[in-house]
Amino acid sequence: MMQNITWKTIGEHSPSDLTEARLQLHYAVQLVAAAGETLTPAQPDASQASLSWDLDQSAFVGALIPAQTPFRIALHPSTLTVMIWDLQGVAIAALDLDQQTLAAGFDWLNRELAQLGVTQTLVPLTYPPDFPDHAIAQGANFDLSQTAALQAFADYYSNTAQLLTAIVSTTPNASPVRIWPHHFDMATLVSLPGTQNGEPKSVGLGFSPGDSSYNEPYWYVTPWPYPVDKSPLPPLSGNGFWHTQSWVGAVLRGSQLAVPDRAAPVQAFLTTAFQGAQVLLS
Score class of each variant (00 low, 15 high):
V32Y: 08
L25I: 11
V228P: 10
E12Q: 13
Y127C: 00
R72E: 01
S237T: 12
A154T: 15
Y220K: 05
M2V: 14
L236Q: 06
L236V: 10
S213K: 15
P217R: 04
V203Q: 05
D45M: 05
A161I: 03
S255I: 04
D86W: 00
V203L: 10
P260D: 00
T195L: 14
W108R: 10
P128S: 11
Y156W: 15
A94D: 04
L25Q: 10
S191C: 13
Q68T: 12
T81K: 07
G36T: 03
L280I: 03
T126S: 03
T222W: 05
T40K: 03
A166G: 15
P234R: 00
A63Y: 03
T165N: 07
G276T: 04
V190K: 13
A91N: 06
A67G: 08
D211S: 12
S237Y: 11
P234V: 01
S213A: 15
G210I: 05
Q196D: 13
S14V: 12
Y27H: 11
S47H: 05
L257M: 01
A59Y: 02
W7D: 00
R253C: 04
T101H: 04
A273T: 02
V221N: 07
T126M: 05
T119K: 15
L281K: 03
I65A: 08
L252G: 01
T195E: 15
A114P: 12
D96M: 01
P70D: 07
F207H: 05
L87T: 03
A166N: 14
L97Q: 02
Q48Y: 13
T69Q: 13
A152Y: 11
L80F: 01
P223E: 07
P77D: 04
A21H: 08
A135N: 06
P176V: 08
L164G: 00
I136V: 03
P41K: 09
P77A: 02
D261Y: 06
L55N: 02
A114T: 15
N110H: 14
D45E: 06
L163V: 14
L18I: 11
A149L: 12
T195D: 15
T119H: 13
A174D: 09
V118D: 07
E216L: 10
L164D: 04
H13A: 12
F153T: 11
Q88E: 04
G62V: 04
L31A: 05
L113D: 11
D56M: 08
G11D: 09
E12S: 13
S212M: 14
K8T: 06
E37Y: 08
F184Y: 15
V90G: 03
T170N: 13
E216T: 14
L87G: 04
D130W: 12
S175E: 02
N159G: 10
L257V: 01
Y226V: 01
W108H: 10
Q138L: 02
A258H: 06
V82R: 00
Q57S: 09
F71G: 05
S212T: 15
S145W: 06
L257N: 04
S14C: 11
L23K: 08
A103T: 09
S14M: 13
S78E: 06
Q196A: 14
W247E: 03
Y157S: 01
L270W: 05
E112K: 14
A140L: 01
K230F: 10
D130F: 12
Q99R: 10
